[in-house]
């Protein structure tokens, strides 16, 4: 059995790891709102300060957090290049060639956007670094509970999510097995043009799909055999409870959002 790390959970004990997953999700949403409410660098500086605090109290190595930027590097490059060359400011441009022009405002605005994206990506990755997929599912289920009022099947949805998560390592093992079996029969997955390689995946995907269905059926039986009947009588062993940590985090979020709004009102826009 090989190790499969789903998501990118970084298993250490820390203040941030222990914060209630629901609050972490709310925190992320509030943080994103704050980033978009910020109209100047002071606001972003406040957001950056909160990010630094989060990373510091999570014991996740800073390099790991920076690695989250790799995924959006192309996006960052694309938006910054576009903004540098196409933003039309007032005054004289530093540089002009056909449709391309570099203005002072363009440089500032593009720097501002890059900062926004970087902060966004880093804090989002902090959520997955410090929260197990199971806890995340529990958190989402709990946050969605009010939707029960409009008969939204909250319990079913969260069960589907957590089952999908726990199927990942099993299906990944199964994929390896099928791949070896097909290779033993002479299947070639490594050579040829991209179209040919994609086509070569079909003999893996079909058995995988069939085995996923069989697993789902057997799992259903096993769940029924253990008295599963939806959430009719069901109780939960692991209850999410708020602690003093969560209070601190809550105050931090509230402080951040208020701060950013005040900075927006009193310090004006970036340009």
């Amino acid at each position: 059995m090989k190790e499969v790390t789903f998501g990118q959970y970084y298993p250490v004990e820390s203040f941030v790891h222990k914060v209630d997953p629901r609050l972490k999700i709310v925190f992320l949403i509030a943080y994103i709102t704050a980033i978009f409410l910020a109209k100047n660098f002071y606001g972003l500086a406040a957001c950056a300060f909160v990010l630094v605090l989060t990373v510091a109290f999570s014991r996740v190595p800073i390099l790991k957090v920076l690695r989250a930027l790799r995924g959006i590097a192309v996006l960052i490059l694309f938006t910054s290049v576009l903004n540098v060359f196409f933003y039309r400011g007032e005054g004289d441009p530093y540089f002009e060639w056909t449709v391309f022009a570099v203005y002072r405002e363009g440089l500032i605005f593009s720097a501002f956007l890059v900062c926004r994206l970087v902060l966004l990506a880093m804090l989002s990755s902090m959520l997955t670094y410090t929260t197990t997929p199971v806890a995340l599912c529990d958190g989402i289920e709990s946050l969605l509970t009010p939707l029960k009022w409009i008969r939204f099947p909250v319990h079913a949805v969260s069960l589907i999510m957590s089952q999908a998560l726990s199927m990942i390592p099993i299906l990944s093992d199964e994929t390896d097995r099928i791949k070896s079996a097909q290779m033993a029969r002479g299947a070639d997955f490594e050579s040829g043009n991209p179209v040919k390689r994609v086509k070569a995946m079909i003999p893996i995907l079909i058995p995988l799909l069939i085995s996923a269905f069989r697993r789902a059926e057997e799992l259903g039986e096993a769940m029924e055999a253990r008295c599963y009947m939806g959430d009719k009588k069901r109780t939960k062993y692991k209850k999410l409870t708020f602690t003093w940590r969560d209070l601190i985090v809550f105050l931090l979020i509230a402080g951040l959002v208020t701060g950013v709004v005040l900075l927006r009102v009193y310090c004006g826009g970036v340009i």
Binding site: S166, R226, C227
Partner: peptide
């Protein structure tokens, strides 16, 4: 049943064992 992988409801041992007991509404 036969296949241990297809009877696992949760990724953590504790949660998986708890599943049946949770279903019947124990405290």
């Amino acid at each position: 049943f036969q296949n241990p992988d297809n009877q696992t409801v949760s990724m953590l041992v504790e949660d998986d064992v708890a599943f049946g007991a949770e279903n019947v509404g124990l405290t």
